[in-house]
Simulated assay, not measured.
Amino acid sequence: MVEIKTPEQIAKMREAGLVVAAIHQATREAAVPGASTKDLDDVARKVIADHGAKSNFLGYGGFPATICTSVNDVVVHGIPDAETVLKDGDIISIDAGAIVDGWHGDAAFTAFVGDGHAPELYELSRVTEESMWAGIAAVRKGNRLVDVSKAIEGYIRRQPRPASGKYGIIEDYGGHGIGSQMHMDPHLLNYVSKKRGKGPRLVPGFCIAIEPMVSLGTAKTHVLSDDWTVKTDDGTWSSHWEHSVALTEEGPLVLTAVDGGAAKLAEYGIQTAPDPLA
């Protein structure tokens, strides 16, 4: 069952989304050579506390931190610790969430640590981020869930191949409904699967977290012995981007973007819905 939100509930999700945006800003600034991933988690904890919000990651299924910190060939669900120290040339995907009055926000981004990155890493991140925005642009009244998957996959497939030979669209993880829980129906694939059909129709009140994960090689992954950390099977590095999006009567609103997604969606000729907190 897909949870359809009222405008008042979407406004609460917008509050949670802006806390997530603040976490992103603070952890992006803190992701420098010499910082540990625990340092980043400490930064996120402070932001959540300063906003009077709650963490939706901490304790989720036993997860021990407030953010996921996924470095280099870690795709998703990396656990912050004091031993993982960022080095010049690393990339890190930071996934963060927050709860305000029972309503959830969730988003992720890929950051570059220091300098000296190969051009294909910048392109990997760009392709992953832009595929997310292509998916967000497909969140329109009358579309179905598969149209979002099609937009994400289509964007990635149209890009020139990297030096490694291909982009791997991670198969075992994807987007999800969000609202009164962090993970809800429907599950969103980042590619089209005939087995899944068209999925639900997108209507006002529909909210979803769109999160492509792309590697410089395989689409296959494995989970480490901590039961959380997900790595690529071939050791190629990966990127992860995510935003939570609400569809309203006036159009889409990117709940976890400071500007509600206005600047990026304008590139698609789409006007975002009015910000309920403005």
Rank of each mutant, 00 (worst) to 15 (best):
Q159E: 12
D234F: 10
A96T: 10
A22S: 09
I270N: 02
V203K: 12
T248H: 08
V76H: 06
G260I: 10
T272A: 14
A266Y: 07
F109S: 13
P162K: 09
G175F: 07
M213R: 15
D42F: 02
I23G: 01
V258K: 15
D226H: 05
E15T: 14
Y268R: 04
D73F: 05
A219I: 01
L40A: 11
T256R: 01
P204N: 01
E8D: 13
S164G: 14
N143K: 03
R196D: 12
A30C: 05
M184P: 02
L189K: 15
R196T: 12
D95K: 09
T256P: 06
L277A: 10
W237R: 14
R161S: 15
D172A: 15
I10A: 12
D227C: 14
T110W: 01
S131L: 07
I169P: 04
M182L: 15
T256E: 09
G177I: 05
V127K: 06
G17Y: 04
L121C: 10
I156W: 00
I23M: 11
A11N: 09
I94Q: 02
E83Q: 14
A96R: 01
K198A: 14
M182I: 14
P7S: 13
G260L: 09
S244M: 09
D42Q: 05
Y268E: 01
T66Y: 12
G34E: 04
Y268L: 08
A137D: 00
S239V: 03
G52F: 12
E130M: 15
V203A: 13
S93A: 15
A151D: 01
I156P: 06
G165W: 05
D147V: 06
D73K: 07
S93T: 12
K54H: 10
Y167Q: 10
R201T: 14
T236L: 03
A53Q: 01
R196K: 14
D42M: 08
Y167H: 08
I210G: 04
V2E: 03
A82R: 11
I94F: 09
V245K: 04
I91W: 09
A246S: 04
V113F: 03
T229A: 13
R14Q: 11
I210S: 00
A96H: 02
Y173G: 08
G197E: 11
S70M: 05
A30T: 03
G61C: 04
V113Q: 03
Q271G: 12
G174E: 07
G89Y: 00
E171I: 14
